[in-house]
Amino acid sequence: MQSLAGKVAVITGAGSGIGRALAELLAEEGCHLALADINASNLESISSALHQHGRQVSSHILDVADRAAVFAFADDVLAHHGSAHLIINNAGVAVSQTIANLSYEDFEWIMGINFWGVVHGTKAFLPHLLDNNAGHIVNVSSIFGIVSMPSQGAYNASKFAVRGFTEALRQELHNSKVRVSCVHPGGIKTGIARSARFYQGINGQCDANRAAAEFDKLARTTPEQAARIIVEGLKNKRPRILIGNDARLLDWIQRLLPGAYPRLLAMLLRKR
Results as ranks from 00 to 15, higher is better:
residue 2 Q to E: 14
residue 32 H to R: 08
residue 32 H to K: 01
residue 32 H to W: 01
residue 34 A to Y: 01
residue 41 S to P: 11
residue 41 S to E: 13
residue 46 I to S: 14
residue 48 S to F: 00
residue 48 S to R: 10
residue 53 H to E: 11
residue 54 G to M: 05
residue 56 Q to K: 12
residue 58 S to N: 11
residue 60 H to F: 15
residue 67 R to F: 08
residue 71 F to T: 09
residue 72 A to D: 07
residue 84 A to G: 01
residue 88 I to K: 03
residue 91 A to Y: 02
residue 95 V to F: 03
residue 99 I to Y: 13
residue 103 S to A: 09
residue 104 Y to K: 12
residue 107 F to S: 05
residue 108 E to W: 08
residue 113 I to A: 02
residue 114 N to D: 05
residue 124 A to D: 02
residue 125 F to G: 04
residue 128 H to G: 02
residue 128 H to E: 04
residue 132 N to W: 04
residue 132 N to D: 04
residue 136 H to I: 10
residue 137 I to N: 04
residue 139 N to F: 15
residue 146 I to S: 01
residue 156 N to K: 10
residue 163 R to Y: 09
residue 167 E to A: 04
residue 168 A to P: 03
residue 170 R to P: 10
residue 175 N to I: 09
residue 177 K to G: 09
residue 178 V to I: 01
residue 180 V to A: 01
residue 185 P to W: 13
residue 197 R to N: 10
residue 200 Q to S: 07
residue 201 G to V: 02
residue 205 Q to I: 15
residue 208 A to M: 10
residue 210 R to F: 13
residue 212 A to P: 03
residue 215 F to I: 12
residue 216 D to Y: 05
residue 216 D to L: 03
residue 216 D to P: 13
residue 217 K to S: 12
residue 220 R to E: 15
residue 223 P to W: 09
residue 231 V to M: 06
residue 232 E to I: 15
residue 232 E to G: 09
residue 235 K to W: 11
residue 238 R to V: 03
residue 241 I to L: 11
residue 244 G to N: 13
residue 247 A to W: 05
residue 247 A to V: 05
residue 249 L to M: 15
residue 256 L to A: 15
residue 258 P to M: 02
residue 259 G to I: 06
residue 262 P to L: 12
residue 268 L to V: 15
residue 268 L to G: 15
residue 269 L to D: 14
residue 271 K to R: 15
residue 272 R to G: 11
